[in-house]
Amino acid sequence: MNEELSNQEFNFSPIFDSAFLYEMYENDYQYVEEIFSTTNEGFQADFEAIKKAFDQQDLATLKKAVHKMKPAMGFVGLLALQEQCQNFEQECAAKQEFKEIIINYHTLLVGLTTANEKIAEEITRLHSFNNL
């Protein structure tokens, strides 16, 4: 990337908290791409762990699996989703019956699935930006 372009700000997609990402990583978009890529690489295993715990109706393991996913979403600026994970984690700890978390689980699952797609798209956008 030439010097002129290196001073440009990358426009993150609206789902990501751009103010937070600028604060975290300043304008080091090579590093942001790396952070997004690392998150993307770890996503599937963590996502599967969540689904497996749910299928086994194991609230304690489900809580742990969501706990691990939570900061990963934070590092890529998906702060609302991070908070959603936090709330769901607390719900897993508080609820006695598995059926009580089912609706919110499915809501979370939709959020995470969308996040996975958006992270992958953003990596492509960042990669193009960094290789201009």
Binding site: E34, I35, T38, T39, E41, G42, K68, P71, A72, F75
Partner: peptide, 9 residues
């Protein structure tokens, strides 16, 4: 740290 992205950061 078990989260790779956090360890890298």
């Amino acid at each position: 740290e078990d989260l790779q992205v956090a360890a890298d950061y």
